[in-house]
Design a protein around this nucleic acid. Structure first.
Lengths: 229, 229
DNA sequence: CAAAGAGTTTGCTCTAGCGCAAAGTTTTGA
DNA sequence: TCAAAACTTTGCGCTAGAGCAAACTCTTTG
């Protein structure tokens, strides 16, 4: 394995408050690995032996409901820590992490978490921020679900995805990883049928374009308006 | 103000990993205050100047939606820390905390958070647990909202409330603070009408008893079954 | 003790969106 | 190259539950 280049990584959220030697020290203890699409990084309930940093790609974090249905609880964009059970006082992973698009992931053994937290206050602060933003995100999803209609929820979900991992293309901004109607329905608490109908009608209005597993937002502004009901 | 008795408080979650002198030190820096029902402890968006520990009573944490509607994001039972913006990397409160039943609350100036965290690893660990359980709770509410019908959601909400702050009475277990149909509807993303209808029908079946602002679960087991659909 | 206020119940109507079914399309892989 | 598998679209009927309206009951207060 080649040595990781700290200068490229220093600007990532978890490291932004650290100086170069600190980042160097942390990276020197990391393992880097590439994962294919569909791979499982860790599974709900398993012992949290490692924590992770997504360098490139997308991770989908899913929970399985009592009756076997699967729902997507969040998407991790590159540059974020995930699977840090230690930070939330757990010893097992609370959800399953799957690779949504080919990813490069750094990992560390869980015991290092405490080391980093105590040795690098900047790291502690940054990871608190991450946890905080998850909390905020979940909260606003609950609000959405309790007050918004599905059209608005789907619009918002797409907006979020685009802002996390959108990529400019000729037609507009495209969601940076393969995503099915089913996926979107799992994120918004609806059915793939309804999502399909919505996307079709939006496509007719020129709001989006979509292929199989691909969604491109042509008019992000109008989409946002839709989401605000 | 009289001196707080550390021996009574040592068993509370935030202190359970600390020894007596440590708890003593923390308590010596706390301010204790009683709040009447309906009072506001802090408001969303305001500078987080303090963090809190609920000794007795109940706190309702609410968020206001874009269109002015208010939704209850969680209830704090006695013994829990709340308003710890620092722990989630924020400088302002992310929600509003209102007093749901007459409460006694300890508070500390926010800068002390860092002091406690670094000086008392047990405190850091315990607060991570609290954050973690909030995360878990929100997550499972999202799952509920996306997969369960309102009858099941309401059943679960009542179960949660009862397990957090239930009090034995002659008829069964009663929710330990005044709560309206409207409140329940805000917790479950439905309307007070639907909640009222549900409670009425449950009352006919002998599952619950309810007065104005009071709900008593006569048959907790059957309620749980209902919640599992 | 009246009168206002706060909370609850119930009836009725209407529709968003689910569930089911079936056919179309794209991709995979043998 | 031809199935089979995976994904998507569309149609149709149906119901959970929202929205609205109105009456009822308990509580507070002047």
């Amino acid at each position: 394995m080649h040595r990781l280049d700290e200068s490229l990584l220093m600007s990532l959220p978890p490291f932004s408050l650290l100086d170069r030697p600190q980042v160097r020290a942390i990276l020197d203890r990391a393992t880097s690995r590439r994962y294919d699409i569909g791979a499982t990084v860790f599974q709900e309930g398993h012992d949290a032996e490692q924590f992770f940093l997504l360098l490139d790609g997308t991770i989908r974090v899913v929970k399985i409901t009592a009756d076997g249905e699967q729902i997507t609880s969040l998407h991790i964009p590159p540059g974020q820590l995930f699977g840090f059970a230690k930070a939330i006082g757990r010893t097992t992973y609370p959800a399953t992490a799957m690779v949504a698009s080919e990813s490069v992931i750094l990992s560390w053994a869980t015991p290092l978490w405490d080391t980093f937290i105590t040795e690098y206050p900047g790291f502690a602060q940054a990871s608190a921020k991450t946890v905080g933003s998850r909390l905020t995100e979940l909260n606003s999803r609950i609000i959405d679900m309790s007050t918004q209609h599905v059209e608005q929820r789907v619009a918002r979900a797409l907006s979020r995805l685009v802002s996390q991992s959108g990529q400019r293309t000729a037609d507009g901004i495209e969601i940076g990883f393969p995503i099915t109607r089913q996926d979107v329905s799992e994120m918004t608490g609806t059915t793939l049928h309804t999502v399909s109908r919505l996307l079709s009608s939006w496509e007719k209005n020129g709001l989006i374009k979509s292929k199989r597993k691909k969604i491109t937002i042509c008019d992000p502004h109008r989409l946002t308006l839709l989401g605000e009901g």
